[in-house]
Simulated scan of single mutants.
Amino acid sequence: MTLQFSDALASTSLPVPSRLEAFIAANSFDRPTLVMDGDLVAHQFQALQAGLGRAHIHYAIKANPTREIIERLVHLGSSFDAASRGEIELCLSLGADPSKISFGNTIKRASDIAFAHSVGITLFSVDAEEELHKIAAHAPGAQVYIRLIVKASEADWPLSRKFGCDRDMALGLLQMARDLGLDPVGFSFHVGSQTRKAEMWAPTLDEMVRIWTAAQDAGFALELLNIGGGFPAFHGEAIDAPTDYAARVMELVTARFGDVPRIMAEPGRGLVAEAGVIVSEVLLVSRKSDRDMHRWVYLDIGRFSGLAETEGEAIRYQFTTDKDGGAVGPCILAGPSCDSADVLYEKRPVNMPMTLSAGDRVLIRNTGAYTSSYSSVGFNGFPPLDVVVI
């Protein structure tokens, strides 16, 4: 399909943060590499915590599990949202206290529940009857929170019906948890990844507070509200500063839920994305015919080596090159693998320099989240995304 120039996304003219820029300029890279600035992660953590106030950050490890990042967050006093035994072991190995780790995946192996219980983890997420039975059998007396399904989401990357349950089932699970000897402490939800404006939380919060109130009316003394993630990073559209954004979210939460004793938040993208830049290289620039309006630019990184979130073109990464400043034109961006699905942006091509050619360096900005953790072990023999933390 032929697109007009007005549909193309211009590459950003914003500078890469100076410490990252200096490190990248001073080094060569023979493979795609994610360069993370640990100081920027720390700054973002403190900025989000300032806005969240009494809500405790449980970093969503899946966003970026790099050891140096986890260790830095441990030292900052962060708590953690773990999805697996591997993530739990990672946090414990770097000094995290088990009391600051929640097992937030609603789909858990029984032996992993038993492991978590054995190392002192007491807080588990659940959205199904069978999961409650597993937890009761392998983590007796544990605290559980029920994950609610979210139907109203304005996020760029809404979560599917894979997670959560509806109102009636949630109330039933609270009672079942109590009957099984567990401690049902509250609810969790996720508004959807990359919710760019705090006001976009309002429909979800309105939906969630009705269930919260119904549970209280049914006699459950709820004490924990887990508001999940959704905190955004800059991917081409304006977002509020992290402290302002988080503070506004908390205003919306407090206006509906009042003085909840315990509030958790699980930022992932919003905490680490803007602290990372991927250094990549152009492998080929071509056209499919003499009449083709768009160039094809093939990078040495694609969907299978870290850029999985280009699926559906929902996340719009920003690019800078050494040839910025001259004439630009629309390009279809693709990865290097022998898979026809390995195309990054085609519906809305990216404006890139007309002089771009094989061997040129391309920096992909704000890629500290969901890149290294999505990278394959080596599809087609291409190396997985390397990570350097400065």
Rank of each mutant, 00 (worst) to 15 (best):
I364M: 08
I149C: 11
M293F: 12
E207Y: 11
D290P: 12
E130M: 13
Q4C: 05
G229A: 03
G95C: 10
V126K: 13
R72S: 07
L284G: 01
S111A: 11
A327V: 06
D7C: 08
C331H: 10
P140V: 08
Y245L: 02
R269N: 10
V285K: 15
H138V: 01
A334D: 03
G236Q: 07
G306F: 00
H43F: 12
A142I: 00
T254S: 15
G268M: 09
G51L: 02
E274K: 11
Y345C: 06
D112C: 05
S340P: 02
L9S: 04
M264T: 06
L94A: 03
T213H: 15
R161C: 06
P384G: 00
D240K: 15
D156F: 09
T321M: 15
E89A: 06
R19D: 10
D127Y: 02
F45V: 02
A369N: 10
A26Q: 14
E251V: 06
Y298Q: 11
L148C: 06
A202K: 12
H58A: 01
P203Y: 05
A241C: 10
E129F: 06
S118P: 00
Q318S: 11
G186W: 04
A142L: 00
A241M: 14
D168W: 10
P158I: 00
S340C: 07
H133N: 12
Y374D: 10
V185I: 14
G192N: 01
H133T: 01
S280C: 11
P203S: 06
F220K: 13
D7E: 13
A202E: 15
G51T: 01
L284E: 12
S373A: 13
K323F: 01
V144H: 13
A358C: 07
P349R: 03
V362K: 03
R178G: 05
V119I: 14
P330F: 00
A55R: 13
E71F: 03
P383M: 14
Q49E: 11
D127K: 05
M208N: 04
D168R: 14
V209T: 06
V285Y: 12
P98I: 11
L92K: 03
S280R: 04
N380L: 12
G276Q: 11
M293K: 11
S102M: 12
A116I: 03
T122R: 15
G312P: 15
P203G: 05
A369H: 08
D81L: 07
K134V: 01
S160C: 09
T2L: 07
V16W: 15
D240Q: 13
P98T: 08
A136I: 04
D322G: 14
P17V: 09
